[in-house]
């Protein structure tokens, strides 16, 4: 019998076999996704790398693009305006992520200490996260008005002289950061709160029995156990912040004196205002390379030594 059935499976045509059907089904299901990604992700990535070496106005036929070799790459390295936007982007990302993480974590700790109305409070803090950035940027642009803006009028109640929020080149980038942190705070808080809830209460009780102070409990229990959450939040928000566009486009258009000029805004301008598509792509690749390095460093930093040395 066994021999007979073995012989029978052997004579089954391969397209009837279970393993073949499974493989064919899988690839058939995956095919549309893989094709889509090839067209809209992998293709454009390769095109980006190729476009770096061309000078092209974006509208003529691609065959008329002029090969410039490393011309774009060397130009980027010495382009003061681009390098300035690069600096601004990083200052912005550090300020936004740094204050978001610190204030968001503090708020989560506070909210973790109360039991009533948690759902309501959490939702209210989260609301601005959902609101469209374009509308909020327009609103804050008005609130930042120097003479009669809402913020300066509030500050005048406590006798603080008017702040030139978006006009002073030294603080314009920080003003925008303030608005972005306000909008994003709820996101940080909700994620940290979920991370805090996942820490078993027994750890804290054991520490309390051992006589650990609140401060010690935070550094020895909360922070180490929150490490995966922190890593996730920082990696995601750094990558997101480095791509900031909407608030800059609406509130300052890169001004005053290029103080809020950021890379993605400048890439957009280079391509669509100055019609230098090859050069704009080179700028984007430049930022991407740096993001890649930073992400790898972040992942390493968290894995060994660095922030986790207190483990």
């Amino acid at each position: 019998m066994a021999v007979a059935s073995a012989a029978q499976t052997h004579t089954t045509p391969f397209w009837r076999r279970r393993s073949f059907i499974q493989a064919a089904t899988g690839w058939l299901f995956a095919a549309p996704i893989l094709i889509y990604f090839t067209i809209f992700v992998f293709g454009p990535i390769l095109a980006s790398l190729a476009m770096m070496f061309f000078k092209w106005n974006g509208f003529g036929p691609l065959t008329q693009a002029e090969f410039v070799g490393l011309g774009n790459v060397t130009e980027v390295a010495g382009d003061e305006k681009f390098l300035g936007s690069f600096r601004n982007t990083f200052v912005y990302a550090i300020v936004v992520v740094g204050s978001g993480v610190i204030v968001g974590l503090m708020l989560a700790l506070v909210l973790n200490g109360v039991t009533k109305f948690v759902g309501f409070v959490r939702s209210t803090y989260y609301l601005p996260v959902m609101l469209p950035m374009t509308a909020m940027a327009l609103l804050w642009g008005l609130m930042f008005q120097v003479r009669y803006g809402f913020l300066n009028q509030i500050l005048s109640f406590v006798n603080i002289p008017p702040v030139r929020w978006l006009i002073n080149p030294d603080i314009a980038l920080y003003s925008i950061s303030l608005m972005v942190v306000w909008k994003g705070l709820g996101w940080y808080m909700v994620i940290f709160l979920a991370g805090l809830k996942a820490i078993p209460e027994e750890y804290y009780e054991a520490a309390r029995v051992d006589g650990a102070t609140g401060w010690q409990r935070f550094w020895k229990i909360t922070l180490p156990l929150l490490k995966p959450t922190l890593l996730f939040v920082i990696v995601v928000t750094v990558i997101g912040s480095l791509q900031v566009f909407s608030p800059i486009f609406i509130m300052t258009q890169g001004g005053p004196a290029n103080a809020t000029n950021v890379v993605v805004y400048w890439v957009y301008m280079t391509a669509f205002q100055f019609l230098r598509f090859g050069y704009a792509t080179t700028q984007a690749v430049y930022l991407f390379a740096v993001i890649l390095v930073i992400t790898v460093i972040q992942l390493r930093l968290f894995r060994e030594g660095g922030l986790t040395s207190y483990y």
Partner: peptide
């Protein structure tokens, strides 16, 4: 194949902005 897809999560949207526009 899944790892290949997942690796695109590391690629920020602005990198492919211009080629996608051209496409």
């Amino acid at each position: 194949m899944f790892m290949v897809l997942l690796s695109t999560m590391m690629i920020p949207g602005f990198l492919t902005l211009i080629p996608r526009y051209v496409l």
